[in-house]
Design a protein around this nucleic acid. Sequence first.
DNA 1: CATATGTTTATTATTATAAAAAGCAATTAT
DNA 2: ATAATTGCTTTTTATAATAATAAACATATG
Lengths: 301, 301
Amino acid sequence: MARNNTRFIEAHNKLLTICDKTEIGGTLQSENVLAADLGVSRTVIRSVLARFDDIGLIALDGREKAIQRRTRAGDRLEKPATLLTIEELEGRFLDWVLRMDVPPGTALNVAQLAKEFGVAPHTLQEFLSSLSRFGIVVRRPRGGWVLHGFTKEYALELSDFRTVLELNSVQHLVALAPDHPIWARLDVLEQAHLALLERIDRDYHDFSVLDETFHEAINSVVTNRFVKEFQKVISLVFHYHFQWNKADERTRNADAIQEHLAYIDALRSRDVGRAQAAALRHLATSKQTLLNALQANSHTL
Amino acid sequence: MARNNTRFIEAHNKLLTICDKTEIGGTLQSENVLAADLGVSRTVIRSVLARFDDIGLIALDGREKAIQRRTRAGDRLEKPATLLTIEELEGRFLDWVLRMDVPPGTALNVAQLAKEFGVAPHTLQEFLSSLSRFGIVVRRPRGGWVLHGFTKEYALELSDFRTVLELNSVQHLVALAPDHPIWARLDVLEQAHLALLERIDRDYHDFSVLDETFHEAINSVVTNRFVKEFQKVISLVFHYHFQWNKADERTRNADAIQEHLAYIDALRSRDVGRAQAAALRHLATSKQTLLNALQANSHTL
DNA sequence: CATATGTTTATTATTATAAAAAGCAATTAT
DNA sequence: ATAATTGCTTTTTATAATAATAAACATATG
């Protein structure tokens, strides 16, 4: 076996349904039409038709595809367990890594991990290769991968990089016209922050999501594919680390909300200097929080 | 055949040389020692020894490995044509893409390209996956890759991103102590620029390399893996585009040298504002040059 | 008992191959 | 006649199988 035949099986079962909608003795449409209807290639349709002929469901004769009998439950084929795609893998893998179930420097076992995540080894390999662009994993000289993971240096560099990107966003943001949607969005966010502040004692946990939304909003004003790509990694890392450091979570989040509110205010002033200063203040706190989380989470030098 | 047996052949030939250094009747060292000396696993050594025994070069008897005869020319094994590694592939691929032999939107044929570049299809696949992080290629829904290539938008976003990173570097640079190596390096670069300016009529072509070195130097003061990763892509893109736009190359490069010199001067002033202004001026020119190169190179909307 | 070899197991890179898609040529029905 | 349909061939991709290597463990020997 080489490729999994999910497409064949799906087309097969869909065509069974179509057969049932046609009376006995009636004929099916042309291969081309069926292929277009089911969204697969003619090759697949032909394989399905060949099987239908085999099991006596239809009689193939030239371009005649006459239905011979009703379908039975046994005609249906079982779908094989569908593997994750490379996109779905991203979330699962980062989740695993960022929780630091494994210390930095560990060799990754592609075959075993692939089984664990329910993907083809080859898919994981490919994914690791793309992750290596962010330095989360590195390729070993003679095959294999090593998890570099989230060391203190990594966190520092990531925070710094984040700061560079966000200060740039701020610079763009304050120059935007008053009717730009970002201002309305900031108003909404401000309300959300104030609302959370009122019920902070109970719902301090909700801040993590709000924080992500807030920074995403600020950076959304820059339409740059490189910025966006990094934003994904950055927000993931910060998001997860948020969830670990349980110490002082309530006060920490309350403080952060205040910083966000001051940040929004500064943005509204349209004064680049003031806005960037407010941004820097909050980003510095955020960086410290990330470092503390790392410290708390064992394996960091 | 699965893996290529380069390691086996290398160890084989190296061990032949070792045999020649030992007199007939002498014995080779233990498998462990040989493995450590040649930097391969014991498994490889054992395969080699087994072959040596086969061809009557040595007599294996327990832990005795007695040399029976001198080696002959025919004993040596021919090394198979070594395939490119994924790192070597990067240069070759970007070279191919950036010359825009193919218009944006083209579907990439993995099997064919792999043959062309002399790599395993699987290696190319992995490489494309990592490139997709930079948006140069994108994965198609049901397998396959599409070259997004260097559209005008891509060039604009790349230039903007480059500017963000470099302004950040400048900010760091001007704050560095006078004994930091960067200052001496800038002195050297300044001389190189002046020297090139004198012979610009003849050697205007050399500017491309100098430009790359110059920007690399400036960005080297920031030790950040994300910055560095991007720098690689950025410098490649700019480097290649440099080589196309032949119109006014001499004057364009002469002008750029002047901008670089002013840039160096501004950096020396230690005045962030002045330095960033000079940087911006040059980066804007650079961006325009890139856009012109794209325009000149046919398939851009 | 330390070191060497024999044997087994695990892991990775590459190849071979089945599944799917796409293209072309021949055929049939209107 | 000609448009549509089928039969057959060629390409291309995803995965499974496999050889090469590495590593681990067990046994033997000086």
